[in-house]
């Protein structure tokens, strides 16, 4: 019992400050344990490293960076200009270009399960969104005007995914005058 008391007070001396003992009981326990295992008579100073507080801080850092990181892909948006009645055509005598109509319908729940049909502009062979994008991009400024209007006409119950894919292909090909038709109507 006296031995323990002595080692405690020695530990206190090593710290030099009494108050610290209360905050670091784990540290003191480590110091004491090492003191016990050390061969008698050895005067080497005790080397000890308190890992507990470091682990505390490391876990906090971990949580901090996990919160700070956004694992999802950031969302983006495809612009769509709505027609306004106020904007007049640049040349009132010019013949309005006949819009090319793109019909799209959902065939299944997957992204590539859709049916595509194009009327006008000699694009009747187009069956996929990728083809639509490539063909309209190549022919822009040639037999299709730069401002060729398009109308996307989704069939009844078409998934938004497929409508947006068609719209995105035409926008990506560089056409600004792409319109989404009203569902089910001539709109």
């Amino acid at each position: 019992m006296t031995g323990r008391r002595e080692s405690e007070s020695e530990a206190m001396d090593a710290h030099g400050w009494e108050g610290e003992r209360a905050v670091e009981p784990a540290h003191d326990a480590v110091v004491e344990a090492e003191r016990r295992t050390r061969p008698r008579g050895s005067a080497l100073p005790v080397m000890s490293l308190n890992l507990v507080t470091m682990i505390d801080v490391v876990f906090l850092l971990l949580v901090y960076f996990m919160l700070a990181t956004d694992f999802r892909t950031p969302e983006e948006a495809v612009p769509l200009d709505l027609p306004t009645r106020l904007t007049a055509p640049a040349d009132p005598l010019a013949l309005p270009a006949r819009p090319i109509e793109v019909f799209v319908e959902t065939m299944g729940e997957w992204r590539d399960e859709y049916a595509l049909r194009v009327e006008g502009g000699g694009l009747g062979h187009v069956r996929t969104v990728q083809m639509l994008r490539i063909d309209t991009e190549i022919r822009r400024g040639m037999d299709l005007g730069d401002d060729q209007p398009f109308v996307v006409r989704p069939g009844a119950g078409t998934n938004w995914e497929h409508v947006l894919a068609v719209y995105n292909a035409l926008r990506g090909a560089g056409y600004a005058r792409v319109r989404l038709a009203e569902p089910g109507g001539e709109g």
């Binding site: 950031p74 983006e76 948006a77 495809v78 990728q130 938004w160 995105n168 292909a169 990506g172």
Partner: peptide, 13 residues
Amino acid sequence: EPPRLSDPASVEI
């Protein structure tokens, strides 16, 4: 989950 677009013509929000 918004639609996924390959080859997107989208802009940042």
